[in-house]
């Protein structure tokens, strides 16, 4: 198996504080993988380093066989790796439609963009009704859907999702995860970060457990769900 994303012994520090240490992880094409861990474990930091928002201290990141280790964020994005950041990151003073068009910013294939836009609206009917509305006025769940739709407009091969369920009511969490599953069913690989370990392990095929910036456990999701240590620490047993 040749991995789509290969993180090898990645270390990231803020000043002198090491937030991520020697983290290794792989995602195969089209695979759904989750990374679970407590508050402050280093999940967001990992995704920021992968997507080029932070420069790693050590280690390497390869995407599709090529190093993206110190590439600036806009170049990483242009290669087909799209991060939906913690807190969604919609552009609040742009309309829903303009936010979606920003997702396709790096693309030039106008006809294809128009087709993808139709598909995103079909996938997310709530957004269709609110095309002209400012994104800052959407509810939290609608903003998360917009962030996902905007990511789709980039036609990514790998989607990095940073806690898409954060702050959402249970019904909305279900709706958002439904959309994520449908995106993955279309062949897009997903690396999902969640504090809701139960949901993450139920959704993904494989998982990694992050503690204090390092991977302590990994394996098929079913195995992790059955692991007593995981059950005790993350599944509330």
């Amino acid at each position: 198996m040749s991995a789509l994303l290969a993180i090898n012994r990645l270390s990231v520090a803020y000043g002198g504080i090491h937030a991520v240490r020697e983290l290794s992880l792989e995602v195969a094409p089209g695979e759904m993988v989750c990374l679970i861990g407590a508050n402050g474990a280093g999940k967001t930091t990992t995704l920021k380093a992968v997507s080029g928002l932070l420069a790693p201290h050590g280690g390497s990141v390869h995407f599709d066989g090529q190093s993206i280790t110190r590439l600036p964020a806009h170049e990483v994005a242009r290669r087909g790796l799209t991060l939906v950041p913690e807190g969604r990151g919609v552009f609040p003073r742009m309309s829903v439609a303009e936010n979606l068009m920003m997702g396709a910013y790096a693309r030039r294939d106008r006809a294809e963009i128009a087709r993808d836009l139709d598909q995103v609206y079909a996938l997310l009917p709530r957004l269709t009704e609110r095309r002209a509305q400012l994104a800052g006025l959407l509810s939290g769940g609608e903003q998360q859907m917009l962030a996902l739709g905007r990511a789709m407009m980039a036609r990514p091969r790998l989607l990095l999702l940073d806690e898409p369920s954060m702050g959402l009511a249970p019904l909305m969490v279900q709706a958002v995860f439904d959309i994520i599953r449908r995106i993955a069913a279309g062949g897009v690989a997903v690396l999902l970060i969640e504090q809701n370990a139960h949901l993450a392990l139920k959704t993904c095929a494989r998982g990694y457990v992050l503690e204090n910036g390092t991977v302590t456990l990994s394996g098929p999701a079913a195995e992790l769900s059955a692991n007593p240590a995981v059950r005790q620490a993350y599944l509330g047993d």
Binding site: A73, H74, R78, G89, F91, M94, Y105
Partner: peptide, 24 residues
């Protein structure tokens, strides 16, 4: 225009704009 949209996006969040492929 595309540049205008990139300018407004960058004004709202430099980080997120760069995630869209905008060379900030």
């Amino acid at each position: 225009t595309r540049l205008g949209r990139a300018m407004r996006a960058t004004a709202q969040s430099r980080q997120v704009a760069s995630l869209m492929g905008v060379d900030v």
